[in-house]
């Protein structure tokens, strides 16, 4: 495929626009690499996971659940639920892909992550933006993700007593730091309380990792059943 000058230009602009956010993606990826090494994933398994799944939070959950015998069904179901948001992310990109072929859509959608999506949408509201900008950002984020995770994996193989450095706690820390980027305001109070309570109760009652799905779905159901924002009197 030969790219036109403007396509190359957009690809490059998209790549550079995502450089800063990609630095934090790499830093955050190094923690995943560390955890993956502790769980016994090889570097090439991690690399294939990066290239094929390419979704930060979902990969953290996968690695956390990575204990022999591998709970294949639970892991895939958890990934499905966590990545549900990509349905909405994909839907929100439809104006950008309006005049593109089906093949173009299938090729370009794989490299959509939260970061380059947010970058692209922010730019799209200001002026004309193409799918090449989106792809350029995706390549930048993917490169940083692979670099960070593999670097972390190397370090993880060196550190033999992770508890001493608090690294077993790292996954709680990662998700606690991440969860507030999803906080939208007071309407989240009740769904989040329900999610936390259902997760805590179902963790003690059910085997495996089903509490993640139970808590998540219960909390989101509360959000769906509550009156929409602005409809109540308070």
């Amino acid at each position: 495929m030969v790219l036109s000058r403007s396509q190359r230009q957009d690809l490059r602009t998209g790549f550079t626009a995502n450089l800063v956010v990609s630095a934090s993606v790499a830093a955050y990826g190094s923690v995943l690499g560390l955890m993956a090494a502790q769980k016994g994933l090889t570097w090439y398994q991690l690399l294939v996971m990066n290239l094929s799944v390419f979704a930060g939070s979902a990969q953290f959950v996968m690695v956390d659940m990575w204990l022999p015998p591998l709970p294949v069904a639970e892991i895939i179901l958890a990934v499905l639920v966590i990545n549900m948001r990509y349905l909405l992310i994909g839907a929100s990109l439809s104006p950008l892909f309006r005049d593109t072929s089906l093949k173009h859509k299938f090729l370009f959608m794989h490299l959509v992550a939260d970061e380059n999506w947010a970058m692209t949408m922010a730019r799209y509201y200001k002026g004309p933006t193409t799918t090449w900008f989106l792809l350029g950002g995706g390549l930048c984020v993917q490169a940083a993700w692979c670099f960070g995770t593999l670097l972390g994996h190397r370090l993880g193989a060196v550190i033999t007593n992770p508890e001493r450095y608090g690294l077993d706690f790292s996954f709680v820390a990662v998700f606690t730091a991440l969860v507030f980027s999803f906080w939208k305001g007071r309407q989240d109070v009740l769904p989040w309380l329900v999610a936390a309570a259902v997760a805590a109760v179902s963790e003690s009652l059910m085997p495996g990792k089903w509490y993640i799905v139970c808590g998540g779905v219960a909390g989101a159901l509360v959000a769906a059943l509550m009156p929409p924002k602005g409809a109540s009197n308070d």
Partner: peptide
Amino acid sequence: RFKRFMDALPGTILLSLIVPAALAA
């Protein structure tokens, strides 16, 4: 409702992940 369900999901999922592990820590 469907939109509100989907919007709430990432936050509630992450929270469900944290709570039991944080309580046990």
